[in-house]
Computed example of a mutant assay.
Amino acid sequence: MSKVKYYYDSETLSYRKIERKKRTTLKYIFGFLLSSALFGFIFVFIASQFVESPKEKALKRELANMEFQYELLNKKMDEAESVLASIEDRDNNIYRLYFEANPIPAEQRRAGFGGINRYKNLEGFDNSKLIIESNKRIDILQKQIVVQSKSLDEIVKLAEEKEKFLAAIPAIQPVNNEDLTRMASGFGMRSDPFTKARKMHWGMDFTSPRGTPVYATGDGVVKRADAGAAGYGRHIRIDHGYGYTSLYAHLYKYNVKKNQKVKRGDIIGFVGSTGRSEAPHLHYEIFKNEQRINPINFYYGSLTAEEFNDLLEQASQENQSLD
């Protein structure tokens, strides 16, 4: 029960009961509610500044995790860029150099993307700068990988071509050392066995018994196996490609036919003394772009350094040729 309040009336010299008007009561109630609402708003506002809701905590955790993942991503990109830089260095300074291909310029490898803003949809967020930079690095890294992949594809093709070239080029002696009687004459001015006049000897003469095997000095295709060229007697010509042709003359008989493919080391014929020949021997020539060149420079595939030096010494002697 609410307390009854009184006041002293000086006119009547007596106490009178205080009567509260309804308007005043409503005013008090309204004032109380207003102040309560205001206090509650202030409390909620202050609490929101210092106290996080479960949703805010979840969002903060998600944001922190995202930043951590982006940090890990950037570290992985650092490692990927380092590995790719090492591959690019080897590509330019070893692989492409070896296969005589032009290095790929750094500006071509690391070129960005011009034109329109590719990352406009990533702008306007709290971490837009971080997200955009990471996406730029990924895009450039992907482009570098594509450039390097194409370069390695080119290197593979060059390597395959180089392998074919190395297999095709004449690189061994056409007669085994153990089958040789001697190396009779080399490339250069020599005395003709029939006229005794000095003239150019365009090949090398390997003396060996009749029937000694003659070997293809490189991969190629037999273009001739006949006796239709003056002075050579029975002879074979092999087209090795890349401008190289080898010739084997004065043969006893053939072991191949025209248009037959041969590999280095295949037996193609046998030593004889047909044509303009003084004794059984193999006359061997090499052509490069239809010009005769010294065969002495093409035995790296079958002779040791000591054997090559001996051959070089014998070939340099200005003796009499056998054809």
Results as ranks from 00 to 15, higher is better:
Ile293Glu: 05
Phe32Asn: 12
Ser36Ile: 14
Ser48Cys: 03
Ser128Met: 00
Ile131Tyr: 01
Leu311Asn: 03
Tyr70Val: 00
Phe113Thr: 03
Lys263Ser: 06
Gln69Cys: 02
Val262Gln: 00
Glu19Asn: 14
Gly272Met: 12
Leu13Gly: 04
Ile46Gly: 11
Arg292Val: 12
Asp153Thr: 07
Ile94Ala: 12
Leu72Cys: 08
Phe39Asp: 05
Arg20Tyr: 13
Gln317Ile: 10
Ala58Arg: 06
Leu97Asn: 06
Glu79Arg: 15
Leu152Pro: 12
His201Asn: 05
Phe125Ile: 06
Glu123Ser: 09
Asp126Met: 03
Ser48Val: 08
Phe194Leu: 01
Val214Ser: 08
Phe270Arg: 14
Leu38Gly: 13
Leu97Val: 10
Met204Asn: 10
Val221Ser: 04
Phe113Met: 06
Ser53Arg: 15
Lys17Tyr: 03
Ile46Trp: 11
Asn121Thr: 15
Lys150His: 01
Ala64Pro: 01
Phe125Ala: 08
Ala230His: 12
Ala64His: 04
Gln320Asn: 13
Ala37Gly: 11
Met66Trp: 10
Ser86Lys: 10
Gly301Gln: 13
Ile293Trp: 03
Asp239Leu: 10
Lys288Cys: 02
His235Ile: 11
Tyr232Gly: 02
Asp91Gly: 05
Lys150Pro: 01
Phe308Trp: 09
Ser14Cys: 03
Ala230Pro: 01
Glu154Cys: 10
Gly203Val: 09
Ser191Val: 10
Glu318Leu: 14
Asn135Trp: 04
Gly301Phe: 09
Lys199Ala: 15
Ser302Trp: 05
Leu322Arg: 08
Gln320Ile: 14
Ala249Lys: 02
Ile140Gly: 01
Ile286His: 00
Gln291Asn: 11
Gly114Glu: 07
Gly228Pro: 03
Tyr300Ala: 15
Gly275Asp: 11
Lys164Val: 12
Ser277Thr: 07
Tyr70Ser: 07
Asn65Tyr: 13
Tyr95Ile: 09
Glu123Ala: 11
Thr217Ala: 10
Lys76Thr: 14
Asn259Tyr: 15
Asn294Gly: 01
Asp323Pro: 05
Glu160Tyr: 07
Met189Arg: 12
Tyr254Thr: 13
Tyr300Pro: 13
Asn117Val: 06
Arg224Ser: 15
Lys3Asn: 11
Asp9Arg: 05
Gly233Gln: 02
Ser151Gln: 07
Gln291Gly: 10
Asp139Gln: 00
Phe165Glu: 09
Ala85Asn: 12
Ala229Pro: 02
Ser134Asn: 04
Asn289Trp: 08
Lys5Asn: 09
Leu59Gly: 07
Ala171Val: 02
Glu160His: 12
Ala249His: 02
Ser14Ile: 05
Glu107Ala: 10
Gln291Ile: 11
Ile286Ser: 01
Ile131Cys: 07
Val83Phe: 14
Asn255Ala: 14
Ala101Leu: 09
Ser48Ala: 08
Lys21His: 09
Glu278Tyr: 15
Lys223Arg: 02
Ala37Cys: 04
Asn102Gln: 09
Ser185Pro: 00
Glu62Ile: 14
Phe125Glu: 00
Leu38Glu: 06
Asn74His: 06
Met1Ala: 11
Met66Cys: 08
Ser208Ile: 02
Ser273Gln: 14
